[in-house]
Design a protein around this nucleic acid. Sequence first.
RNA 1: GGAGUCGGCCAGACAACCGCGGCGUCCGCAAGGACAUCGAGGAAAGUCCGGGCUCCACAGGGCAAGGUGCCAGGUAACGCCUGGGCGGCGCGAGCCGACGGAAAGUGCAACAGAGAGCAGACCGCCGAACGGUUCGCUCAUCGGCAACGGUGAAUGGAUGCGUGGCAAGGGUGAAACGGUGCGGCAAGAGCGCACCGCGAGUCCGGCAACGGACCGGCACGGCAAACCCCACCUGGAGCAAGACCGAAUAGGGGGACCAUGACGUGGCCCGCGUCGUCCCCGGGUUGGUUGCUUGAGCCGCGCGGUGACGCGCGGCCCAGAGGAAUGGUUGUCCACGACAGAACCCGGCUUAUCGGCCGACUCCACCU
Length: 127
Amino acid sequence: MNAPARFPRSARLLSAADFAALRSGSRRLSGRCYTAQCKPASGSGARLGLAVSRRVSKLAVERNRIKRIARDSFRRHRHLLGARDILLIANPSAAQADNASLHAELDQLWQRIATLNAPGATGTMRG
RNA sequence: GGAGUCGGCCAGACAACCGCGGCGUCCGCAAGGACAUCGAGGAAAGUCCGGGCUCCACAGGGCAAGGUGCCAGGUAACGCCUGGGCGGCGCGAGCCGACGGAAAGUGCAACAGAGAGCAGACCGCCGAACGGUUCGCUCAUCGGCAACGGUGAAUGGAUGCGUGGCAAGGGUGAAACGGUGCGGCAAGAGCGCACCGCGAGUCCGGCAACGGACCGGCACGGCAAACCCCACCUGGAGCAAGACCGAAUAGGGGGACCAUGACGUGGCCCGCGUCGUCCCCGGGUUGGUUGCUUGAGCCGCGCGGUGACGCGCGGCCCAGAGGAAUGGUUGUCCACGACAGAACCCGGCUUAUCGGCCGACUCCACCU
């Protein structure tokens, strides 16, 4: 019935408020091309937001590519991630990496997020 | 076949699986789902011009400021395009050019150089003129027996030393007061002549830019991407324009001024419109819908025009997001894939770009 690898609108961070909420009290995981900020959320299933600034690449084509790879990888691994909001920030080195490298790094990143404490447990908030 | 010029076009292909956005139909109380279909570019880019659209007054007068700049067309408009003229480059097809006015006025030209604007003489050239120096001849006179010497006058030659003549040549410069040649002259010079150049003259051709012939005389240097003059153009802000709905509320408290006032109004003045206005304190807001894609639209045919383009008929619908879709992976093939991603919409310009296709034309070589 409901395909596991979809990427519907409900799986995205849509408002400025969503992004602001991740600014504080979130767990940060760094990779070479992407940095993830994530935080347990009340919804059903993970939600993704992307931040790819002009600092990463001056070319719009490159920024689009970085976001497309990230979205495609996210939808394939979304079933692993539980109810979380995740903000994925691209680093300048992402512009030099080819698609296969980006996919490989994201595969590892999702695994790391999935093995974090389950939402609602000890938690990552400090106060 | 080789080299080249101009114009037009394409921008890896196919398949499978998994996705995303719009519109339509259907299912579902809803969330959502199914099916069908469409889904980046020639530059989507730079934001350099021009317009549409929206609001300010359906944008008016003057000044200021800015833009354009051979002529005539095309166009909604343009700084674009087409045709023509002139100049330059190329054997040629063709290519390139901010290309109006320097007799309206003001100004500028560093360095070098003799001299830089109604200029100038450093080297140089000139013995025609005046003076000097020097050599010769003649005459006069003085001295001497004489050879000869002194002085003076006239005359012939030499000399650029002074007064002076010249601007051809050298040299400086981005530029030196038309160029080349012949004549001419003391040497020279538009001083004279021929050709070229030049001209605010006359006639002819052309809508015009301009061209041709005749005539004239050598005067009027260059720079207007210096100010400027002339002609034409330009109101401002931009889709975060603007409109609607919802939420939040309240038209809270205090003070000042009733006008030659404030705001609209972001160059200034006028004009026009609106209104009680301004200051302080306190409180509160950033969601949704629309604008948003049918348009100076694209394709085909016909007609008019050298052409840009215009007119007529027929057909087509060709992204519309909004934390921002238009993709990912794998496989096969080949010429192994460049620059690069719509954000209100068009017309241009400019810049980036692997490679390929088509058409017209030019030059060279070869064959018949």
